[in-house]
Design a protein around this nucleic acid. Structure first.
Length: 837
RNA sequence: GCCCUGGUGGCGGAAUCGGUAGACGCGUCGGACUUAAAAUCCGGUUGGAGUUAAAUCCAGUGCCAGUUCAAGUCUGGCCCAGGGCACCA
């Protein structure tokens, strides 16, 4: 064994050997239980960044740990390779998106291999390749046949910078998720996936996901945004129209003093009187000009104009005016709101501004005997300074007076149901998923348009609909795909007449919503995956990735899994059993980014320190879920530690035997202690990995064990047979424990010490519970709960003996002299607390 | 405004059940080796009081209460930071 540690040399050597041997290939047939470890696959942007390194290292260590613990592990990798950056790069450099993507994949594959990741590359999936997107298209057609994919004209989010529409989930604070450009509303005919059909089950099943963090689950729940309430219909006085409203506060219906419709409300023109037309038109025009960001700003002063018409409240017979105001949103509920200024802060603000009446219908429980309140004298009404939104008791509400407002919600809605002017209604904030993109580099939506036959799906035997190559990427204002001379014109699969292909491609999130299923059967060319294989490997046992996908990818994938289950393609209903959302990699307190110039290039780390140092460091300083602050000194420290480990092994190599040996039961004291420390390390490290993958403490324990072995060794100048056996046991165990992290170093050491086969094929070490504890205990002695003394004691002492030991301590005697012992608490093997007065 | 997560030394962070607060590392200070440096090794490092040095004592896990023999850990109320949602009726 060499004296010095040369990571670059040994890493290259072993990577080559592993590749030649096919060391990490997974078989579908095995007696062992399955374990599916998965990292979120990357977009091939060009180079790995430290976030990737962290993500893939975490999953790799998990996969290796599970393999050593007897599981048949699936650990695949692939590429989320459709998307705008490739197209932009193509425009900029005059290249083809495919060439650019292929080059990036090749480079990043090399980097992944340099990191020593244990992937089964035979299962690699690349979403931009026809053998993959054929099945994305096929799945789209299955959803279409089930009515889960449909085309409709709607107000959609448009990003001018990217030249395409976006899904709601891709609009962050009114801006494009990718380029930060302000998003506009456009009225276009687009393809949608009907995720709203699954709103309820997507929400309900969050409860099943005990292996997911609450943060992600609540983010999804908020996004789905379920609320329960009622729809009430109000007859218009001036004509025979009805205006339905959605409310979560049916209990306040007697307090309505006006009604608001959104400026884009469909019947607004018919609801406007000729005298008010001019003002209403002007208001609507102004609303159209405003950006989403301006309009949705909650601190903006509310504005609106009256329409001139009125409605009748069926509960009271009262007549109240209709207004339009942009605080009503056309896309939520019915686009119209019943206004109860006394019990809604927004309505209150609006009523105050326009001097509309405020009618109290709920009062706090403790005021219900106050006789003045229910009659609501006008001076009281004008005196309230804010809306009362808390629970309470109904007043001014006819037969519902005195009823608790929660009960009233049901009772009042029931009255509307019975009277035929209302219904119970559950509302979700979630909208259908807009999947059309006016871009080239995506999976073509497999439909054609025929003047005679309308929308026609492409027959399955004609899939894939290939992306055309004769495309001009320099066009502005339209999708490059439309410049193809061969793509657009085709024949109708129904009548054989001339037809036009859909030129929109699919959102890349469609491709990434099912890739984890494809890994189970990546080479299948007759189906996206065989049912038995997908049912065997899925759900993913451990999914690891960034929190930025908490809604987007993770919600879409859950939807896909449920939809595909309903199509009979698979038999489970959640794709990811356990989810680890790793924190960001920071440098100097902020996220690494090119614009800030605080990035660290993984290649430089591999070159200067080796992959094992990179892997060790990225796991060392923070638990996986928390943000990780990169420090150059920290890398240096890890490199030094691996050198220290290397020296420990190489300087003792001559004494170490890999062949089985037994340690006798009665060892010398220091050897017994050493063996115990090894067992303590095995136990601690195993538990830390099993318990939420606390790799930072795992690495602390590596260091403790190494320090302990050095310490033990420094006290011996000559080694007898027993010493050699103890040393061999300690060092070989250390190598095994470190093998999932320092994958190359441990393989080299194992090999140099004469180990058979690969260290990565052996079993994880086991500990002996009797040995995984110190030979004696430290008895903590407290007086009134404060630490006063520590006494070394035998483990086997009884409670009385421990108590006696504590009371005989000189320190304790001194401290309790002249005081009365009230009581004594003994915690076996640990502590004695003497309570004195 | 609502929801989630977190708050422990100079820093990253440890601390199964309530039972020795600060493991391990970074940084730093001191020492050994060396002509010197690097590398390596050894030791100190929460704050304050105390001492030539020690011993020792006091305080201490965001704040305020509470439960308990004993609270970083449990309960109630707040404060702060990060993230998510939001004129969603």
């Amino acid at each position: 064994m060499k004296d010095a540690y040369f990571p670059q040399e040994i890493e290259k050597k072993w990577q080559k050997i592993w590749e030649e041997k096919g060391a990490f290939k997974t078989t579908d047939t095995s007696d062992k239980p399955k374990y599916y470890a998965l990292s979120m696959f990357p977009y091939p942007s060009g180079k790995l960044h430290m976030g990737h390194v962290r993500n893939y290292t975490i999953t790799d260590v998990i996969a290796r740990f599970k393999k050593m613990n007897g599981y048949n592990v699936l650990h695949p990798m692939g590429w989320d390779s459709f998307g705008l950056p490739a197209e932009n790069a193509a425009m900029k450099h005059g290249a083809n998106p495919e060439t650019w993507t292929d080059e990036n994949i090749a480079y990043m594959t090399k980097q992944l291999k340099m990191l020593g990741l244990s992937y089964d590359w035979d299962r690699e999936v690349t979403t931009c390749k026809p053998d993959y997107y054929k099945w994305t298209q096929w799945l789209f057609l299955q959803l279409y046949k089930k009515g889960l994919a449909y085309k409709k004209e709607a107000a959609v989010n448009w990003c001018e910078e990217c030249g395409t529409v976006l899904a709601n989930e891709q609009v962050i604070d009114g801006k494009c998720w990718r380029c930060d450009h302000v998003v506009e509303k456009k009225y276009l005919s687009q393809w949608f996936l009907k995720i709203t059909d699954y709103a309820e089950v997507l929400l309900e099943d969050l409860d099943k996901l005990s292996g997911w963090g609450d943060n992600v689950k609540t983010m999804q729940a908020n996004w789905i945004g379920k609320s329960e309430g009622a729809i009430f219909k109000f007859k218009v006085v001036e004509n025979d129209l009805e205006v339905p409203v959605y409310t979560t506060r049916p209990d306040t219906v007697h307090g309505i003093t006006y009604l608001v419709v959104a400026p884009e409300y469909k019947d607004i023109e018919k609801l406007t009187t000729p005298e008010n037309k001019e003002a209403v038109e002007a208001y609507r025009a102004n609303a159209r000009k405003m950006t989403e960001i301006e309009r949705l700003s909650t601190d903006r002063v509310k504005t609106g104009v009256p329409l001139g018409t009125h409605c009748i409240n069926p509960f009271t017979g009262e007549k109240f005016p209709l207004w339009t105001a942009d605080y009503a949103l056309v896309e939520y509920g019915t686009g119209a709101v019943m206004a109860v200024p006394a019990h809604d802060t927004r309505d209150f603000d609006f009523a105050k501004k326009y001097n509309l009446p405020i009618k109290i219908v709920i009062i706090p429980d403790d005021k219900k005997d106050d006789k003045d309140l229910p009659s609501c004298p006008p001076d009281l009404l004008s005196s309230i300074t804010e809306a009362y939104t808390e629970p309470g008791v109904l007043v001014n509400s006819n037969e519902f007076d005195g009823m608790n407002n929660e009960d009233a919600k049901k009772a009042i809605t029931q009255k509307a149901v019975d009277g035929g002017f209302g219904e119970f209604k559950t509302q979700y904030r979630l909208r259908d998923w807009l999947v059309s993109r006016q871009r080239y580099w995506g999976a073509p939506i497999p439909v054609v348009y025929c003047d005679k036959c309308g929308i026609q799906p492409v027959p399955e035997d004609q899939l894939p609909v290939l992306l055309p190559k004769d495309v001009d990427f320099t066009v502005v204002g339209k999708s490059p795909i439309t410049t193809s001379k061969t793509f657009v014109n085709t024949t109708c699969p129904c009548c054989g007449g001339p037809a036009k292909r859909e030129t929109d491609t699919m959102d890349t999130f469609v491709c990434s919503s099912w890739y984890y299923l494809r890994y189970s059967d990546a080479k299948n060319d007759t189906m996206p995956f065989a049912k038995d294989k997908v049912n065997k490997w899925l759900p993913v046992d451990q999914y690891v990735g960034g929190i930025e996908h908490a809604i987007l990818h993770l919600l879409y994938s859950r939807f896909f899994t449920k939809a595909l289950r309903d199509l009979g393609l698979l038999d489970f209903d959640e794709p990811f059993k356990n989810l680890l959302t790793q924190g960001m990699v920071l440098k100097d307190g902020s996220k690494m980014s090119k614009s800030k110039g605080n990035t660290v290039d993984p290649d430089e780390i591999f070159e200067n320190y080796g992959a094992d140092t990179a892997r060790l460091f990225i796991l060392s300083d923070s638990p996986p879920a928390r943000d990780f602050d990169w420090s150059d000194a920290g890398v240096e420290g890890c490199y030094k530690f691996l050198n220290r480990v290397w020296r420990l092994i190489s300087s003792n190599a001559e004494y170490i035997t890999v062949s089985p040996f037994t340690l006798h039961s009665s060892l010398k004291k220091e050897n017994d202690d050493m063996v115990r420390l090894v067992h303590i390390a095995i136990k601690g490290i195993t538990n830390d990995i099993s318990n939420d993958f606390q790799f930072n403490t795992v690495i602390s324990k590596y260091r403790e064990l190494v320090n302990a072995i050095y310490d033990w060794r420094s006290k011996k100048s000559e080694l007898d047979d027993e010493d050699k056996a103890v040393l061999s046991f300690a060092i070989l165990t250390l190598i095994k424990l470190m093998s999932p992290v320092a994958v190359h170093l441990t393989e080299e050491a194992w090999h140099d010490l004469g180990g058979q086969g690969s260290i990565h094929d052996i079993e994880w070490p086991k500990w002996d519970e009797n040995l995984a504890k110190a030979s004696s205990i430290t008895l903590v002695v407290q007086i009134n709960g404060k630490l006063k003394d520590k006494i070394e004691a035998d483990e086997g002492l009884s409670e009385d003996e421990l108590k006696e030991l504590a009371l005989n301590s000189d320190k304790v005697k001194e401290l309790i002299s002249g005081k009365t012992i009230v009581k004594t608490i003994v915690v076996p093997k640990k502590l004695v607390n003497i309570v004195v007065k």
